[in-house]
Design a protein around this nucleic acid. Structure first.
Lengths: 230, 230
DNA sequence: AATATTATGTGTATAATATACACAGAATAA
DNA sequence: TTATTCTGTGTATATTATACACATAATATT
């Protein structure tokens, strides 16, 4: 069966672009940090409508030439000046009326950063950038409370399965600091000896033979093992 | 500080639509079924370019008035005639060149269906719809091999955490059938007695006091407990 | 109809893992 | 110098996971 060039082209276009509905895509990012022995989330105050003066997860448009992951990195770089941030995809949200004015599909990520290393700065359409305790998240704009809850759940799940504390601790840290971090993320207390046993037998940490000063007991500092094949 | 109506409107529009990049969004679905004691995945053969004659995951455009989840249901309804399918979001994919002609962001889902209950039918731009063993997935169009692998991994993970076999078994089934299903999904063999012990103490199944005929031993049929509060 | 075959259904012993728990030593604070 | 607070360590117990064998029921075979 032969078809004309026009017909072929038509079919191709139709296939590529059937009914051609296009939609705005944004990325939002739950940025977690560990500060004052507490798990924090970075929220920005929106300075324009809609949801003016609401706290929100930082986010932005997906760029034409960038993947979502790259777009998230761009947002993070803008807010904190860092690249190389550990980030994980959480979920995609597509409720038709999640944005009151036009349809916007968003993909949520979470990222882990060290607050002390990366002072945050207000950006476009944002009047304030503040670390909030994850236990006291205010009412957020759009559906961002849902995103925040989902992101935290994903972080917890990943923490239980792997050993992901990426950017959340300084390069050298004590087991106590690591335990505090775990307890903050999981929101439960852990037995000190059992935690130590479990973590050490994972064989992912190396003792640095340095001791942390200024704290009683003189605890040993550990760092993350670089090459697991050694 | 006062601003003109025009300025306000301008700000609003800019905010809502900053640089206004829109993008085509599709949904793709790894449909799993359990047939001939094997976990199967439903693939469609594409009849148009690009990737003409390649096997693919079934999918389609996200509809203007529908969420992604609803769009997936629409695809599934078109292929199998059923609604009420258990589906889970897997991941969103946004590589800039994942589609050779234009940019398309896709969100992958998986769904669980009973093949015997739902004969599948070819649809637009599709010349064939066939159940394939998950162990013999051919080369797929676009990046669908990646989606398929991710979907199967997600299914396995969910199976280990919950008890999700949704549409994969008939209403009444024997423990053997359930175990075969688990073994197919997890791709490992399980001890019969230990499996039985574990599943039964989850307290999610109820014995029907019926026996399956045509099979030696006369095994009891179970169904899923409807209301866990009873 | 009798017999062989194949699948079901059941419990226990052992191994592996998770949990609970107390005291001596080191650094800081008083 | 002494008190305080944190670190570092091992074991006993409970819980959970794993390995494993035989009697019974239904079908298949002769």
């Amino acid at each position: 069966m032969k078809v004309s060039k026009e017909k072929q082209l038509d079919t191709l276009i139709t296939t590529v672009n059937p009914s051609s509905y296009e939609c705005t895509i944004t990325v939002d990012c739950a940025i977690f940090g560990f500060q004052d022995n507490e798990l924090k989330i970075l929220l920005v105050k929106r300075s324009v409508e809609p949801f003016k003066d609401y706290w929100m997860l930082p986010g932005g448009m997906m760029d034409e030439g960038l993947t979502m992951e790259e777009s998230v990195r761009k947002v993070l770089y803008g807010l904190t000046g860092i690249h190389d941030v550990h980030q994980e995809q959480v979920k995609c949200y597509s409720d038709v009326s999640r944005h009151p004015i036009k349809r916007v599909v968003t993909v949520c990520f979470y990222a882990l950063v060290k607050p002390e290393n990366h002072p945050v700065i207000a950006k476009n359409y944002v009047s304030d950038v503040v670390w909030h305790s994850v236990n006291e998240i205010p009412q957020l704009g759009f559906d961002h409370n849902i995103l925040a809850v989902d992101a935290l759940a994903k972080l917890r799940q990943n923490l239980k399965e792997n050993l992901i504390f990426g950017e959340l601790l300084p390069e050298k840290f004590t087991l106590k600091e690591l335990q505090d971090l775990y307890e903050s993320i999981l929101d439960e207390t852990l037995d000190r000896r059992n935690f130590r046993k479990k973590i050490l037998q994972m064989d992912l940490l190396v003792p640095t033979k340095e001791k942390k000063v200024g704290v009683k007991g003189g605890p040993e500092l550990y760092s993350i093992k670089i090459n697991n094949t050694t």
